[in-house]
């Protein structure tokens, strides 16, 4: 293609081709300092005109690649960076067959991982990002990669996708780590944040799962935590995985082992300060 970029994130390499230079230039700035990609990519992403004339006239970016959703709506060119990120997500969601994918934010401390998972909008991404700025190793805000062979989680430290109100929480971050502000996306205002340097330096280092939390945010929620039964944890994690079914017995073995060994709790919170205090307390008290 006209422009191309190779990226390595955790154990996964991407090849991204684009009909336009700008999305890849933004991507390159955002992922500065990441290790060199493998010579062979796991996945190919293509950003191309939805129709041939759309390269110039009101350019709109179709998200395609090894795996494509036929009805995915194209994005306007100024959101090309978001299109690239969505393209990589799509390849993982539809094409990743080595690791069990958990839709979760993951952070680690002393080689042990905390899994933050739950419904969209529960704040797991923001929480993982905040914890990554205060003493935890950030491993990912979108996908946890559970290795069925070892039971360990592999980091997948993509750029963090800050949405709407969460942007203000990172105003103090080094401007060099921030991408452009993307307005008018399907999810409102988005800005990407490069993970902390140690998250990138240690992105080949897996961690053993030690605690699963299901956060739930509500401005009026009292800060509370409660146990979640193993069967419910299992069901919720299958729902949080895009490839559980296609991994077959490997997925079953990996997930039942995870649920049997790792304690889980649900937490409600009304502010991120509350949430972080709860996380620290539950982490210290984990079985």
């Amino acid at each position: 293609m006209r422009h191309a970029l190779a990226l390595k994130i955790g154990p996964v390499s991407f090849r991204i081709g684009s009909a336009w230079r700008e999305p890849l230039a933004q991507l390159e700035r955002l992922y500065a300092g990441y290790p060199a990609a493998d010579e062979v990519a796991d996945f190919t992403v293509r950003l191309e005109p939805a129709t041939p004339w759309r390269r110039f006239a009101r350019p709109s970016v179709a998200i395609r690649g090894d795996y494509t959703l036929p009805d995915a709506a194209p994005l306007p060119l100024p959101l090309g960076l978001l299109a690239a990120e969505m393209g990589m997500n799509l390849q993982m969601a539809l094409g990743q067959k080595r690791y069990l994918l958990l839709h979760a934010g993951i952070v680690a401390r002393d080689g042990e991982a905390l899994i933050l998972t739950g419904a969209s909008g529960a704040g797991k991404s923001t929480l993982a990002a905040l914890l990554g700025e205060q003493g935890w190793r950030f491993m990912g805000d979108e996908f946890g990669l559970l290795d069925p062979e070892t039971g360990f989680l592999h980091p997948f430290p993509r750029a963090i996708s800050l949405k709407n109100a969460a942007l203000a929480l990172f105003d103090g971050a080094d401007p060099g780590r921030l991408g452009p502000v993307l307005r008018g996306t399907p999810k409102g205002m988005i800005r990407h944040l490069r993970p902390p340097a140690d998250a990138i330096a240690r992105m080949a280092e897996p961690a053993r799962p030690a605690l699963i939390l299901f956060p739930r945010y509500g401005r009026d929620f009292p800060a509370e935590d409660r146990p979640v039964g193993a069967a419910e944890v299992f069901v919720r994690l299958t729902q949080a995985s895009t490839n559980y079914v296609s991994l077959g017995a490997r997925g079953f073995d990996a997930l039942t082992a995870l649920v049997a060994e790792v304690p889980a709790r649900a937490i409600d919170y009304g502010s991120s300060a509350e949430a972080i205090a709860m996380v620290e307390r539950l982490w210290a008290a984990r079985a």
Partner: peptide, 18 residues
């Protein structure tokens, strides 16, 4: 190459499940 071998192994497993 090892990386290719690993990608091909994933594809074989996936086909078996399909």
């Amino acid at each position: 190459p090892p990386k290719v071998a690993s990608i091909l192994l994933d594809a074989r497993r996936d086909a078996a499940q399909a």
